[in-house]
Write a protein that binds this DNA or RNA. Structure first.
Lengths: 222, 222
DNA sequence: TAGATTGTTAATCGATTAACAATC
DNA sequence: TAGATTGTTAATCGATTAACAATC
C-alpha cells in the first residue's frame, strides 16, 4: 500500500547528464558564483533549458523563480544523488593500456571512485606501481575484496578472460562491475553491470559523418 | 518530390549496437559458422531477439525465414553501413594517459579508424613514438591535416585547451571530432562532434548500485 | 510593478516491444 | 508437412519538448 511514498521515477538519460552539470557547477563555484539559472547551465552544456530543469528535478534540489538555484546546494544535491560525496573504493583488473589510463584518469577520482589497486597476471607488471597504486597478482583479488569490503570492480582484461575474472570478482563479494570488455557478462540479478563501449561512440561518429557528407554532396548537385 | 527515395530512418540506438553484433559475428566467422539467427545473436549479446532484428534492418541485409542471416554478408553489411570497410585516417591531439591508451587500443583499429599520428605540446613527448606512431608538435597539426586530407580528429587534451585545439582542427579541415574532454565544443553546423563521457557511465553505475542496495535493505526489513 | 525563472502538467516524439502473416 | 524464423505493421512505453500558472 503506497500510502506516503511518492513513486520516484529515475530516468537514466537524466542520471547520465548529471556529471556534466556537476563539472560546470564546480567551475562556477571556484569562480565564486553563488546562483545559477537553468538557462545559463543549458547554454554552458549545450542543451535546452527545459532539459536541464527536468534533469535537476531528480536530485530533489529546488530553485527560486527569477533567482535560480544555489550553486553549492546544487553541487551537494547532485553528489548526494549519485553517492559521490564519499569516494567508494574500487579494484581494477587488467592493467593494459586502457586499465593504466583509467588508474591515472583524474576524472574518476573527482567522481566518487577511488581505485585502490590494480590486478594483473603479467609477472612484469606485478610489484610495480601505476600512478601511485600497486599492481598485485590477480589471484590475490578475491581475498583482498573480502578483507577490504570492496564493492566495485573495473574490468579491463582481454575479452577471453572477462567472464572468468568477473566471476572471480562476484564470488568474492563485488556488487558492481564497470565492464570495459566487449563481453556480455552472465551475472545474477543482484549484480549491477555497467558496460562501457568505445566502439559504439565511434559507430555514431561514423554514421553522422557519412550522413553529413551525403547531405553536402546533395547540395552540391543541386 | 520524393518519387523513388524511401525515407530511411536511422535510429542512433540501433547504430550504437551494431559494433557489438559485428564483434560477435567476426568470432562466429572465425569459428566457421555460415548462418546465424537473431535468436542466437540476441542470446550472445544479451538483448531480445526483436531488438536485434530491428537493428539489423537498418543495414539493408535480409535473412531467410527459418534459416537466418548469412554471417559473411551480415559482417560486410554492417561494415558498409558504418563505413568501416576502409579504415579512415585520424589524428589524435593530447597524448596523455587516455590519449596513449587510445593510440594502442586494438578495438579502434578493428573498427575502421587508423590513428596515424599523435600531437602534443610537451617537448618530452615530441619525437617519441607511442604504439608505433610518432608524436609530433601540436602546431604542425593543421598543415598535416591539409596535406594528408585527414577528416577525423580525436580530442584528448586537457579541458582548458579543448576549444582552442578543436578550432585548430576545424580550421584545417577536420570534419568530425571524437571529443573525450568535458567541454561542450562550439562548432558550426557542418562539423560532427561525438562526445565521449566516462563519468556518465560511472553515474549510471553509481545510481544502479544505490538502488540495488536500497532494494536489498527493504527486503531485509520485511 | 514587470519580467525572468521555476515547478508541473500535458502534448509530442521516438524507441522498444508485441503481434502476426509470409515463407523456407 | 510442421515449426522456426523473417519482415512488417501496430501498440506500448518512456523520454523529450511545450505550455503555463505560480512567484520571487
Amino acid at each position: 500500500m503506497d500510502t506516503e511514498a511518492v513513486e520516484k521515477v529515475v530516468r537514466m538519460p537524466s542520471v547520465k547528464r548529471l556529471p556534466g552539470y556537476l563539472c560546470i557547477l564546480r567551475r562556477f563555484q571556484m569562480q565564486g558564483r553563488e546562483l545559477v539559472s537553468t538557462t545559463h547551465l543549458a547554454e554552458e552544456i549545450g542543451l535546452a533549458p527545459i532539459v536541464v530543469r527536468k534533469d535537476l528535478e531528480i536530485t530533489g534540489i529546488t530553485g527560486k523563480p527569477k533567482v535560480g538555484y544555489p550553486v553549492p546546494e546544487l553541487i551537494e544535491g547532485i553528489e548526494n544523488f549519485l553517492g559521490w560525496n564519499n569516494a567508494t573504493d574500487a579494484f581494477l583488473a587488467g592493467v593494459g593500456c586502457l586499465g593504466s589510463a583509467l588508474m591515472g584518469y583524474q576524472g574518476i577520482r573527482n567522481n566518487g571512485l577511488n581505485i585502490v589497486a590494480g590486478f594483473d597476471n603479467d609477472p612484469a607488471k606485478i610489484g610495480s606501481t601505476v600512478h601511485g597504486r600497486s599492481i598485485l597478482p590477480l589471484k590475490k583479488l578475491p581475498d583482498l575484496v573480502r578483507r577490504m569490503h570492496v564493492r566495485i570492480g573495473i574490468l579491463t582484461v582481454p575479452a577471453d578472460a572477462a567472464e572468468e575474472v568477473a566471476q572471480m570478482m562476484i564470488s568474492a563479494g563485488i556488487k558492481g562491475i564497470w565492464n570495459f570488455t566487449t563481453v556480455d557478462l552472465k551475472t545474477g540479478p543482484d549484480i549491477v553491470v555497467q558496460k562501457e563501449d568505445l566502439s559504439s561512440g565511434l559507430a555514431a561518429l561514423s554514421v553522422k559523418l557519412k550522413r553529413a557528407k551525403e547531405k553536402k554532396e546533395e547540395e552540391t548537385e543541386s
